[in-house]
Design a protein around this nucleic acid. Structure first.
Lengths: 228, 228
DNA sequence: CGTTCGACTTGAACACGTTCAAGTCGAGGG
DNA sequence: CCCTCGACTTGAACGTGTTCAAGTCGAACG
């Protein structure tokens, strides 16, 4: 059956994610992953085309845990500031075990080569989920924005989350305290900007932003060649 | 003298940058760089601690060329939109020969590990230069913003440039046309936001943004361990 | 029971980035 | 002239990610 190898695959994922957490990306070798999973080196490559493919698995896990942790923290009727703040902090909470891995995380997660990029087609589902979480933030919070903004705001918030992740990865302050402060500082600003959309001056801004988002369109498909 | 090896070093940089441009990051091996520079493999490591160190050299070159190309394009008294647009397009122009390299470019350029990151201490000078270019954009353009914003805007524009670079790297549209459109769409929005700072509502936003930037402080020092 | 087939598994092999003990070589001092 | 010293150079060697020809093994078929 096509099911026989499922357990092997699971053992590989378990071993990889544990080693990533304990030793970081670089120090975790494919040989150790294979050994700890009780299979041969070559066999690991039967299930995962590359080491980065295993990182993709981590990406999915972090995403899932983010949803699970953030969901219960959302409060219907709370301000956008409060709910967005909760979701962003939850994101950091979920990623923090992989901090030492972090530098290499973006390294693997950002570029469009192959699967791992949040912009790639392979991550489309996961990205949709992440944007969905932001959509929940928007719809659940008090003072829901008007039509056009309601559609675009989740994606914009997701982009903000991405930016904060970049800061987190490069944040060497103890416990990444600076990133926490960044979240606390940025969320009210975002809320204020959203509130601005009610004024005439803000409405024009929203229109322009929406136009640019349409023009630039969906995140690009994966790049053809250009490995690594 | 300490000068004897300077020519060897130059030959290595020349070979590396040329190969990066022609074959991309992955396909360029240290062995080929060394061979084409007419030195041994080990000798390349006498001058550059790692392959990424050679990328740092590329980073510096691109930076320098960006300044040289963008400077003459600035028009005193033109709008912020026009000048910012010119500088951003110049950035893409300068980077485009390294597009195939691109995916790996961010891979190497973003994470804080060691030298190459724009956030690292080693890149502080280069970053200062990049922010300086944005400062020139601000001071040269018509309608210079008021005090606090005048200080912070260059850094914010540099961050915007970074974001656009991320888009460029992941942009698979032919000729990266989407990124060009993104620039054309985003620059008027930025100008509009800057103009907003004159209104009371904008003034409060500026104050908050400045506070966050202070709190988060200078970009972090390089991360201790966490290689790659 | 023998045969075939395909999912799964193996370990050797490859090219790579990086390290290092050993060497070369020219200038300066005795 | 010999010696020393330090900047520079070398190629072998290590461990890595990845590939691949060759196997194992159980189920389905005759």
């Amino acid at each position: 059956m096509a099911e026989r190898g499922a357990e092997t695959r699971d053992r590989l994922v378990d071993a990889a994610l544990r080693l990533f957490r304990e030793d970081g990306y670089q120090a975790t070798t494919m040989r150790r992953i294979a050994t700890e999973a009780g299979v041969s080196l070559g066999n690991a490559y039967y299930y995962f085309a590359s080491k980065d493919d295993l990182v993709h698995e981590l990406y999915l896990l972090v995403q899932r845990e983010h949803r699970e942790l953030a969901g219960p923290r959302l409060r219907r009727g709370a301000t956008l500031t409060e709910n967005l703040r909760a979701v962003l902090h939850a994101g950091i909470d979920v990623m923090s075990p992989y901090r030492e891995f972090g530098s290499s995380f973006l390294t693997v997660a950002l570029p469009p080569s192959s699967r791992t990029s949040p912009f790639s087609a392979d991550s489309a589902a996961a990205r949709e989920q992440a944007v969905g979480l932001m959509r929940e933030v928007v719809t659940v919070s008090r003072g829901r924005p008007s039509g056009v903004l309601l559609d675009r705001l989740p994606t914009l918030l997701w982009l903000a989350y991405l930016g904060i992740t970049v800061h987190w990865v490069t944040d060497s302050s103890p416990g990444q305290a600076r990133t926490r402060q960044l979240i606390d500082g940025v969320t009210p600003i975002i809320s204020r900007l959203v509130g601005l959309a009610r004024l005439p001056v803000g409405r024009r801004l929203v229109t322009d932003v929406a136009r640019v988002m349409d023009l630039v369109g969906a995140p690009a498909e994966p790049v053809p060649a250009a490995t690594r």
